[in-house]
Design a protein around this nucleic acid. Structure first.
Length: 597
RNA sequence: GGUCCCGUAGUUCAAUGGAUAGAAUACUGGAUUCCGGUUCCAGCGAUAUGGGUUCGACUCCCGUCGGGAUCACCA
């Protein structure tokens, strides 16, 4: 039972005994006491006034007296306005501290055999262009969420749907055929996804030129689009692909493989992975079958040109295209098939889609369509909708070439980390490989922390320079704090200063020490909240706060220089607990912490 | 135009309906015999706007203004 739960139960008891009343547990508010007040936990008295029928101060006083008497760990209390602030005894906190460091999984609720299964989809790239900054936020959110879910009592399957077919893929294939002159990643040394992306852009350029030429002849934009030969060729290619035309399929396989090889490198560098990958090319036909089935059952309808639609006007939405006039599938079609396959493959309790908020409408529709098709889980899908990433210079626009490539960004961040670390010169004795590993940790830690500290729902501005600053609310600042603690322990063994491995219960704590123990002790609550709210940002903000608190403690408390052995052991225990908590918190963000940096 | 999301210090971000709206950065001033000064302390400075609900509103409701997304035989 957590401290809050104990307090909440005791408050309920108190209300029962003092006022002969019963209240719903939910309205009892127990929270950590604000830093500027004396105390550890605060009970908000206002909601109790209706049963106490007394003034807030008197009610708080009643409650404080009762709790202090009943709970041995309450040392003192103070009532300020409508708030009852409880101070817990130092020996209680110290005992707790020892319990925390003895438990490797403190704060983590590991899944058992009966735990619910959560499937989390993220990344979901198209195989026509390389990953960019927006994908990075997606991947980091998905990966962090999966870690958080895995330590809040869920079995987790990380999944990815690769959008490897469709008209957009045909565009890059066509461009390569026409203008590629047989170039390959091997022949050019270009990373596969970048090479294919280049041809996608090339198609677009030629297509635009063709449209301009047609419009120059007096055609309207719509007419020009209809008459475009390039687009006609792309559409024809898609038809051939769906018909299984050997040449087209061979080319598709070859070019997709180039892209996969490229993606693998990017994922590896980003430090993320998947348990199960679905390919749209393998799921779209399942979706098409379901759509045709729905058509037979009269759930959907066909227009004169043969296209299949869902009428969602009863749901307050529009009509939605499910199959084109020529019978080929669209995005929605495959998502129906993918969902069906997943629920066939796994005993999914909760399906989470990490997809940007520009697709809010799409998922609303998907959910309704699945429901209409008779899947009882359709309406329970969770669209984890996150905001766009912008740069200090403004929005990324592919047309204007201001898209930040994921590989380039990571490389630049690593370069910066390398320069900064070399200036510090704390890596003497490290091999080049080990040092490079540290540069990577710092660069990626900076990127991940910066992206994840922001509420996922909101749009954000990513500032690469600011993110890797070793000062401020950044990943490197947190990593630095961890490295410094590790340095203390190295120094201790150099100097032959032993650590007893736990804190003596008899020492007293100063305010900063007390706050630190309380913060470390609160870690499990933060993890649970982050799991419930699907919010890595809560973890990030917590870890930062902890690091900052630690630095305040560190600044004015001698640790190894402390002469009182008992106090020294307590402080070293505290240091250890903080370093472990920072490490775990950063792990939940998918970030590593170095021993030195 | 319909629907949805968002407006908090100069800037980037916080705040389960709870106390005097917190940080970071920038700027100004200060600390330090030291275990990693990439530290610590102080100052400066904000809830777009008008109503409503509440003991209590950045938070919930309605209006106005501003920004974004979406409403594709793109994904």
């Amino acid at each position: 039972m957590t401290i809050e739960e104990q307090l909440r139960n005791s408050v309920l008891e108190a209300i029962n005994e003092l006022y002969n009343a019963h209240l719903d547990e939910k309205i009892i508010q127990v929270q950590l006491t604000r830093k500027d007040q004396k105390g550890d936990y605060t009970v908000v008295v206002f909601p109790l006034l209706k049963v106490s029928k007394k003034k807030p101060e008197e009610t708080g006083e009643d409650l404080g007296r009762y709790l202090k008497e009943k709970l041995a760990f309450i040392e003192s209390y103070e009532v300020i306005k409508g708030f009852l602030n409880l101070s817990l005894s130092h020996s209680f906190w110290l005992e707790r501290l020892n319990g925390i460091i003895a438990d490797e999984n403190y704060g983590f609720e590991v899944a058992g055999a009966d735990s619910p299964l959560m499937m989390i989809e993220y990344s979901s790239p198209n195989t026509n262009k390389p990953l960019h900054l927006g994908h990075i936020r997606n991947n980091l959110l998905g990966y962090s969420l999966s870690r958080i879910a895995s330590v809040t009592g869920n079995k987790v399957v990380k999944t990815n749907i690769v959008n490897d077919r469709g008209i957009h893929i045909c565009k890059s294939m066509l461009a390569w055929q026409k203008w590629g002159q047989g170039v390959t990643p091997a022949s050019s040394g270009e990373k596969g996804d970048h090479l294919v992306g280049r041809f996608y852009v090339m198609f677009d350029k030629h297509y635009k030129a063709e449209l301009a030429a047609l419009e120059g002849k007096g055609l309207s934009k719509e007419e020009a689009e209809k008459q475009s030969l390039l687009m006609a060729e792309a559409r024809e290619m898609l038809l051939k692909w769906e018909a299984g035309d050997k040449d087209v399929v061979d080319l598709w396989r070859t070019m997709n493989q180039w892209v996969y090889d490229g993606f693998d490198i990017t994922y590896k560098n980003l430090g993320i992975d998947f348990d199960k990958i679905y390919y749209e090319s393998e799921t779209y036909s399942v979706g098409r079958d379901k759509v045709l089935e729905g058509l037979e059952k009269g759930i959907f309808y066909k227009k004169a040109d043969g296209s299949v639609w869902a009428d969602l006007t009863d749901n307050g939405l529009d009509e939605k295209l499910l199959l084109r006039g020529d019978g080929t599938s669209v995005y929605m079609t495959q998502d129906i098939g993918t969902a069906k396959l997943r629920f066939d493959n796994y005993n999914i309790e909760k399906m989470v889609y990490v997809v940007g908020n520009e697709q809010d409408y799409h998922f609303k529709v998907l959910s309704i369509l699945l429901d209409k098709l008779g899947f009882e889980w359709g309406k329970d899908l969770v669209h984890f909708s996150y905001g766009m990433v912008e740069l200090p210079e403004g929005k990324m626009k592919s047309r204007e070439g201001t898209v930040v490539d994921a590989d380039d960004l990571m490389e630049e961040m690593i370069d910066t980390a390398r320069e900064m670390s070399k200036e510090l010169g704390k890596l003497e004795g490290y091999s080049d490989e080990d040092a490079e590993e540290v540069f990577r940790m710092v660069a990626l830690g900076a990127l991940k922390y910066f992206m994840l500290k922001v509420d996922p729902k909101k749009n954000m501005t990513f500032n690469p320079k600011e993110s890797i600053d070793f000062n401020g609310n950044t990943g490197p600042f947190i990593q630095y704090t961890h490295a410094r603690i590790k340095s203390i322990f190295r120094k201790a063994s150099d100097k032959g200063i032993a650590w007893s491995g736990s804190a003596p219960l008899s020492v007293s704590l100063n305010t900063k020490e007390n706050n630190l123990v309380r913060s470390v002790s609160n870690f499990p609550n933060v993890v649970q909240e982050a799991g419930a709210a699907f919010s890595p940002a809560l973890i990030a903000n917590y870890v930062y706060e902890l690091a900052k608190e630690y630095n305040q403690f560190y600044h004015d408390s001698p640790i190894l220089f402390e002469e009182d052995e008992q106090v020294r052991n307590m402080r070293m225990t505290l240091c250890y607990a903080v370093s472990e908590t920072i490490k775990k918190g950063m792990w939940l963000l998918g970030a590593d912490v170095p021993e030195r940096m």
